[in-house]
Simulated assay, not measured.
Amino acid sequence: MTEFLLIVGMFLVTFSVRYVLFGVAGRVRFPPWLTTALNFVPPAVLTAIIVPALLLPRGELWLEADNPWLISGVFAALISFWRKDLLTTIVAGMLFFMLLRLGFGL
């Protein structure tokens, strides 16, 4: 019963916060400086997720040529700049990572 109440409580908190934000979404206007600043949030969040995964895959800094995560990340970035297509970037990066891990044993 405790787990059920915990799940219901989490649902109520999550739903209420999102419902309030969606309910006032059309009525609230942010100042231009805040709108500009909020445009930087997605790249900042993605950078905070991706950079540690590439540079710290084992929990410590690994900046050597045998780091398959870093090599694949650089390859994916080059594909991204060249093709400008998210799906191509993801698939090419993952295939390159699998090639490094399985083909070359890195």
Rank of each mutant, 00 (worst) to 15 (best):
T2A: 09
T2F: 09
E3H: 10
F4T: 11
L5G: 06
I7F: 11
V8A: 10
G9N: 12
G9K: 07
V13E: 05
V13G: 01
T14D: 03
T14C: 07
F15Y: 15
L21Q: 13
G23V: 10
G23P: 08
A25M: 13
R27V: 08
R27Q: 14
F30K: 09
F30N: 11
P32G: 04
N39M: 09
F40L: 12
V41F: 09
P42E: 06
P43C: 04
T47G: 14
I49D: 00
V51A: 10
P52W: 02
P52M: 03
L54Y: 05
P57Y: 06
P57F: 05
R58V: 11
R58Q: 14
E60P: 01
L61P: 08
W62G: 01
W62Q: 12
L63S: 12
A65Y: 11
N67M: 04
W69S: 05
V74A: 02
V74F: 00
A76P: 00
I79F: 02
S80P: 05
S80F: 14
F81S: 05
F81H: 02
F81R: 06
K84Q: 14
D85R: 15
D85W: 05
T88E: 11
T89L: 04
V91P: 03
G93F: 03
L95D: 01
F96K: 04
M98E: 06
M98Y: 12
L99Q: 00
L100F: 04
L100W: 01
L100D: 01
G105R: 01
L106P: 00
L106N: 00
